[in-house]
């Protein structure tokens, strides 16, 4: 099937095409899903090289499960987020013991006037603050507020109830507010309105 013809095909149907030997379907899925998989892994691990390994491993698992994939059973992206979350949890547990001094922090000399620089320092500050959250809170906050998923899907990914998701995101946001907004002056944020 021509590659362009696959742009409107749902993820799950592409996976079935791949399982039937269609290499173009694999290419379409790779280009469509890798940015999301990598982005989520980077946010969870705060390490680009490790996140790339996780993204490759998650996609490899996708290729392997393709022949057994049953349509209408689950959303492909939900399954992938879950795989990435589990792979990152494993890596984080192995790395446990990393001190707070190794966590990426916003640099003290970040200029506060230019909007571009302010965006960069917001991103750095958020990443630093996310690193200080408990793992489950961090995952829930990233899925809800950065990946933009709804609570029922997050519940499926994290294998918990919807109320537990709400509780995790609420506590996570409170902790982030304390960590980030207490440093507003230090980070030089002036246009927060």
């Amino acid at each position: 099937m021509p590659f362009n013809a696959l742009s409107d095909v749902p993820d799950e149907a592409l996976l079935v095409l791949f399982a039937n030997g269609d290499a173009a379907a694999a290419q379409a899925l790779t280009l469509r899903l890798t940015p999301r998989v990598l982005g989520f892994a980077v946010r969870l691990l705060n390490d680009h090289a490790e996140a790339e390994d996780v993204a490759q491993e998650a996609m490899l698992r996708l290729w392997k499960i393709a022949p057994e994939w049953r349509q209408n059973e689950a959303k492909l992206t939900t399954w992938l987020y879950r795989v990435v979350s589990n792979l990152c949890t494993d890596r984080l547990r192995k790395k446990r013991g990393v001190g707070l001094d190794q966590i990426v922090e916003p640099s003290d000399d970040a200029p506060g006037a230019a909007a571009v620089m302010q965006t960069k320092s917001r991103v750095k500050a958020l990443q630093g603050a996310l690193e200080q959250l408990p793992e489950r809170q961090k995952t829930a906050v990233i899925l809800r507020h950065i990946e933009g998923l709804k609570n029922p899907e997050i519940a499926q990914i994290m294998d918990i109830g919807i109320e537990a998701v709400e509780s995790l995101t609420a506590r996570g946001k409170r902790a982030l507010a304390t960590l980030l907004l207490g440093r507003k002056d230090e980070l030089g944020f002036t246009d927060d309105g």
């Binding site: 694999a26 980077v42 680009h48 993204a55 965006t119 507010a177 907004l181």
Partner: peptide
Amino acid sequence: ELENFFMAERNTAPALSDMLLARII
């Protein structure tokens, strides 16, 4: 105020290398 941080993060996609895409394909 928190939404400003989340929005900044959402608009910052991690760099996607051709090497990674080639490895996955």
